[in-house]
Structures are given as C-alpha cells and as structure tokens.
C-alpha cells in the first residue's frame, strides 16, 4: 500500500490519515485550455482534507473555483493534476459515496416530489414499495409530507430545495457535497433551510463540504471555514476552526459574541480577496 501510494506521488504522511479522512484533495489543480491555445490556471495546486463527521465550509469570492473543487470531490470534474482520495482510494469517475445538492434546479421536472426521491433509492436496488415508503418518510422529515404528489413547478424554490435535500439524504451517502444550495433563496428561507440542514445533519453527522460565498452562513453552519483566494491561480489562504457550541440554531447563533468575533477575524482575510477579485474584474473589462 505504502509503496504503491509513494509511486503515485502521494506523501506517506497523508496516506496514514486516510482512516479518518473521508475526502482528501492532494495538490489538485484545475487548468483550462482556452480557444486561443493558451492556458488558464483557475485553481493552483491545493490540498484539503475533510475528516469523518466534519462540516467544512469552503468560502471564496465568486468565480474562484470553489465549486470546481467540489465537483472534483464529486467526480464530475477530473483535476488537471493532483489526486482526489475518497476513504484512501483514488477517485475515478463518479463518487458513489457522496450525495450532492446542486445550486441550480436539479429535480426531474417530469417526476413528482415523491418519485424524485424514490428513484434515487430504486437505483440503489431497493424494491419500489420500500423505496416509495422511505421517500415518503424523508419528505415528511423535510416538512413536505403534504406535497408528495406535487411536480417541481408546483413547488416554491425553498420547497424544491427541501425535495433535493430529501433526495440526497434518503440515499444515506457517506458524505454530503453542497454547492451554494440555498443561494437562490431569499434570506428568511435560507435561514430556515440552514436550520433544517443542521437538524438533519446532527442526527448522524456525515462529513460535509459546503460551498458558499456567504461568510455568515458558513460560520453559522460549519466546524471549519476554509477561505479561497480570488482566481486565477486561486488557492486556500485561510483555515479557521469555528468553536461554537452544537447543537446550534443557525439563526440565533449569529447573535452570539463569539460568532461576531469569528466573523470579524475571517472577514479581514476575505475582504482583501474580494477587493482583489473586483480589481481583476475591472482590469479584465478595461
């Protein structure tokens, strides 16, 4: 094992961690070939480990490549260089152990809420009756017990996210990947969805990688907030543990002095990056 890992260019120090490390991005870089033949290095070689039961929020200015890193863990994007290890095994293809909550509309519009959740279970090999029963119970847990037969277009944006959450959690994945899942929602709905997520997560504490550009949301939800710099050549520039007691109320916690203190410390780092991002965007325009 050790020799093999060394042959793959992975330091032995990291391999030892793989027992409690759910996902490990090691020197992962993302480079795009542009139409004019040049290269654009979106994400510089980055290393990030997510431990069992850990809720990690990845925060950065818009367009810094944080969603791309998430997609690498999901197996939807192959890194240009570096490796992604899932429970110590190199990932190739779709990450079957992960549940992914998308920012954009991801429900199948031709299926009802119930069928959308049940189909993910049927794919896992559950008999139809059992799948439907479990889907029903999960939709109940996310507060949609009365909306089982609705089609996605008959639900509000927040309700559709709840269906998505049930769809992901019902399959009992070993880790959760979330790409600004509550981004398109209004502020009140976001707070409620954050609370719902924390409540469900608290039950079995799966590892979570939560991408957001909202620092407050990140601190309110996560155990660890990782800050990325503005692209190109985006990289991790800060890694802050969040020492707020659990279980938390995703909304109330924002009023605690410790929250405000943490927010101030992280914002100092993030602010510079946001300004840098604006400056680059303006340069590009000029």
């Amino acid at each position: 094992m050790t020799t093999l890992e060394r042959a793959r260019g992975i330091p032995t120090s990291l391999v030892g961690q793989s027992e409690q490390t759910v996902a490990l991005l090691h020197d992962v870089a993302i480079t795009y070939h542009l139409a004019d033949g040049s290269f654009y290095e979106a994400v510089a070689p980055t290393t990030l480990a997510i431990a069992e039961g850990e809720f990690v929020a990845l925060v950065g200015p818009t367009g810094c490549g944080k969603s791309t890193l998430l997609n690498v863990v999901a197996g939807l994007v192959a890194p240009s260089s570096g490796t992604c290890l899932i429970h110590g095994d190199r990932l190739s293809g779709i990450n079957g152990q992960a549940g992914y909550l998308f920012q954009a509309e991801a429900l199948m519009p031709w299926k009802t809420a119930l069928a959308n959740v049940a189909v993910g279970l049927e794919v896992q090999g559950l008999p139809r009756d059992e799948a439907t029963e479990r889907a029903r119970s999960w939709l109940g847990k996310v507060g949609l017990g009365a909306f089982l037969q609705r089609y996605p277009h008959q639900l509000s944006g927040g309700q559709r996210k709840r269906v998505g959450l049930a769809q992901v959690l019902a399959r009992d994945p070993r880790m959760l990947l979330m790409d600004e899942p509550f981004g398109p929602l209004d502020a009140q709905t976001r707070a409620i969805m954050g609370d719902l997520l924390l409540g469900l997560w608290q039950a079995d504490r799966k590892a979570v990688l939560f991408v957001t550009h909202d620092l407050e949301e990140a601190i309110a939800l996560a155990d660890r907030v990782v800050i990325m710099s503005a692209g190109p050549n985006a990289s991790i520039i800060g890694d802050f543990p969040i020492d707020l007691a659990r279980p938390r109320d995703a909304h109330e916690v924002r009023l605690q002095p410790a929250f405000v203190e943490t927010h101030r410390a992280i914002w100092q780092v993030l602010k510079e990056e946001v300004l840098k991002g604006y400056a680059q965007a303006n340069e590009a325009k000029a």
């Binding site: 998308f102 794919v123 896992q124």
Partner: peptide, 19 residues
Amino acid sequence: TILANARMLGMKERELFRH
C-alpha cells in the same frame, strides 16, 4: 444539472435513458 444530479444519484446509461 439534472443530468449531473441523476448521475450523482447513481444512474448508469440505462437508467439515465429511462428516467
């Protein structure tokens, strides 16, 4: 996005076709 979601839900070619 719907396609990526379906694949994350574990669907292979045959299931993608059907669903």
